[in-house]
Structures are given as structure tokens and as C-alpha cells.
């Protein structure tokens, strides 16, 4: 398959990255190139193979239901570009 500029724009939109027309033009062949290269995986016979779920055999541990965190609003907001009255602030969302 081939990635056209419309697809590049769509993907960039999904990824929330603004792209200029020039970037789109440049990205389309680049992505095509890379995707064309990874395409070779299609030739691998994977019948009966389960997708990998854990790199090294390991079991998920479950945490006890205890409140051990929170109450650190200052720390949570410390690096915020804009924070007011204990909230993070973002451009107004019209719902």
C-alpha cells in the first residue's frame, strides 16, 4: 500500500502534530519507504503463532487496595505551563 499526502495529513491529525504542506510532501515518501521496508514481515508464516504478550515470562502482580498516594497537588501542578486555582488550565473547550 502506498501512503499519499491525504493519509499523511490524516495520521498527523490523529497524532495531533501540525504539519506544513512542505512537511507533508517530505513525509509521504519517507513513510512509504519505511512502511515498504517493514512490509517484508508479511512474508513470514505465522500460522499457529500467538502474538507475544510478555517478553520474559512474568506474572502480573496485584496491588493492595490502599490509599498510598495523592495529596500532592503542588507537586502535580509544579511543572504545568498554566495552572490556576489548583487546576490545570487549557484553551476553553466548547462542548
Amino acid at each position: 500500500m502506498s501512503v499519499d499526502t491525504a493519509t499523511v495529513r490524516h495520521i498527523a491529525r490523529l497524532a495531533r502534530i501540525a504539519v506544513s504542506d512542505a512537511e507533508v510532501e517530505a513525509l509521504a515518501p519517507e513513510l512509504n519507504n519505511i512502511l515498504g521496508w517493514v512490509e517484508q514481515l508479511q512474508e513470514v508464516d505465522v500460522s499457529g503463532v500467538e502474538p507475544m504478550t510478555a517478553v520474559i515470562p512474568n506474572h502480573l502482580r496485584l496491588r493492595e487496595d490502599k490509599v498510598t498516594d495523592g495529596g500532592i497537588r503542588e507537586a502535580v501542578l509544579a511543572n504545568a505551563p498554566v495552572a490556576e486555582h489548583g487546576f490545570f488550565a487549557v484553551p476553553k473547550v466548547i462542548e
Binding site: 517493514v38 514481515l41 508479511q42 513470514v44 503463532v49 502474538p51 507475544m52 517478553v55
Partner: peptide, 15 residues
């Protein structure tokens, strides 16, 4: 399926 899942299967084969 074509990409990610296939890759995870090939990854299992590599392992």
C-alpha cells in the same frame, strides 16, 4: 492485524 499483530507474532518467532 497486518502490522502490529503480525509483528508481535514474528517477535514471538524471534524469541
Amino acid at each position: 492485524d497486518a502490522y502490529f499483530n503480525q509483528a508481535q507474532k514474528v517477535r514471538a518467532l524471534i524469541a
